[in-house]
Design a protein around this nucleic acid. Structure first.
Lengths: 226, 226
DNA sequence: CGCCTATTTGAAAACCGTCAAAGTATGTGG
DNA sequence: CCACATACTTTGACGGTTTTCAAATAGGCG
């Protein structure tokens, strides 16, 4: 019964969707299941690279902390997405911590098991290269934003990036948005209040709904060139 | 004669060093050679993903521009390193521009040629996954720094990262250092003047030499916790 | 020697973070 | 069902870090 569920989860991922039933079964056999409550840590930055994980249900945030303890959200992942893979492939400690946002069920696959599976299924490598390429592209865009854009543009871009992935209803608090954009809660609030006045967004506690994506896009481009 | 050189270049890369002579020859046959003067662009952000490149000789910088035209240096690469691969694997436009820093000779491999070579040599995929993982790790560290650290720490960390890769003599101007750290030339100069006074670095025009890496590391950790 | 680029310095101001305090949803336990 | 705790949101004032602008100096290459 559990195995049936596992195979369904694996089939639903971008990376493994191309495998046939026998291969999915094999992979499911290698995996183990774990469940976490909301706000639990699945692993911490610096831990040994034991396993990589695939989200069966729920959401997690990937976080790093500055030298002063300020949190920065590197990424948000939900069902069907993989995390912890960078550490596994390089056999080095995890580069970030992963914390659940809601109650979350994950499939874990141990490092050695996954690497040997990968050796037998080279087409999966190409999928992984694709996923990593996309993440690198995102990371470089965010680097450029953090280095060169003002807070307003960064916040607008963060919201646009999120809405492109999960739709116009963003289930995030202002603090989370700030932690993704490299600013503070207060600054995020001030900016959001501004957007609300102008009818660009609507919001309730812990949720932001984008009403006018066009205006938001204009804002993300910066002030009209002088 | 040219082909001999090509094979030597390919053998000298992390990614292809494990191939045997016949395989190297095959790959060399697929590649083409191009030479650029200093400060020429090899491709621009947004160009179609024609080829990926390997540096035979010279150095390049990977740059992106903010909405206000400010330059941000995503990475520096030198002999034996690969660039343009993200676009090739995803078959999407290049995510950044690449400009030579010195006179540079590169080997290019066309997208289709490389993908078919990769299909026949799955072990290379694992190497590429390793390279991409490392770059992702770096990018995430820099994101955390840009989001959470002060300019002084960012500059110190940039210098430490560079010195770990290329040694304690850094062939960069203050402007380049600023463009890697997400700050301005003037701010970088002020900080460097400070470091010079304290004997942490020595510098001539366009070059910085780290004298006291321990002090620099302390600085990169931020002010002593109060 | 002259030009171009890199480095330097100073002053003013903008942006944004910090601190403090209060109001407002949401859920929990009694 | 209400009271309370908790977390999220809001607002204001202040100040510091960093950018911006301007102008001058100095190093290296042709």
């Amino acid at each position: 019964m559990q195995d049936i569920k596992k195979t369904g989860v694996l089939k639903g991922t971008f990376i493994f969707s191309s495998l046939n039933d026998a291969e999915i079964d094999e992979l499911a056999g290698l995996s183990f299941e774990r469940t976490f409550a909301a706000n639990e840590f699945i692993f911490h930055e610096g831990d040994a690279p034991d396993s990589l994980y695939i989200i069966a249900q729920g959401q997690v945030k990937v976080v790093k902390y500055s030298s002063q303890g300020k949190e920065f959200i590197v990424a948000f992942f939900s069902s069907g997405e993989m995390f912890g893979e960078v550490a596994v492939f390089q056999n080095r400690h995890y580069p970030a911590s992963v914390q659940t946002a809601t109650e979350t069920r994950v499939l874990g696959i141990r490092r050695r098991d996954f690497l040997s599976f990968l050796a037998d299924h080279p087409e999966i490598s190409l999928k992984i290269i694709n996923v990593l390429s996309g993440r690198l592209r995102d990371a470089q865009n965010r680097l450029r934003d953090l280095a060169g854009e003002r807070v307003e543009q960064r916040l607008a871009r963060t919201m646009l990036m999120l809405s492109a992935r999960i739709g116009s209803a963003l289930p995030f608090t202002r603090q989370e948005l700030a932690d993704m954009s490299g600013t503070t809660t207060e600054t995020a609030i001030r900016f959001m209040a501004n957007l609300k006045e102008r009818g660009v967004i609507r919001s309730t506690r812990g949720k932001i709904i984008i009403l006018d994506e066009v205006k938001l896009k204009l804002l993300s481009e910066g002030p009209p060139q002088v």
